[in-house]
Amino acid sequence: MLEMLTALFLLIGAAFALIGSVGLARLPDLFMRLHGPTKATTLGIGGILIASILHFSDQGQGVSLHEILITLFVFTTAPISAYLVARTGLHLDARNGDNVD
């Protein structure tokens, strides 16, 4: 039962991570590309880490809570990275003279 749940979270997570990267690869401009990695990939890694918690808690060595740290870290840093990349993009566009804003 727990194994099935682990497998489910793994597959959901991996699928979202892939969708985020597909978005990064195929959308036409930088600001649209930003959406894939910041949301889908972040949730994807969240799913994989939940699967990891379930898997290692099932090994009989107590509950594994390590993964919460990585999850929290990724969830707090992903928007910051996205914000900085967006700012960089705006800045470079402004310097090159295309008025995006």
Partner: peptide, 10 residues
């Protein structure tokens, strides 16, 4: 940045 279809840019 984490919710539907929006990213904060500036």
């Amino acid at each position: 940045s984490l919710t539907p279809g929006t990213v904060a840019a500036h």
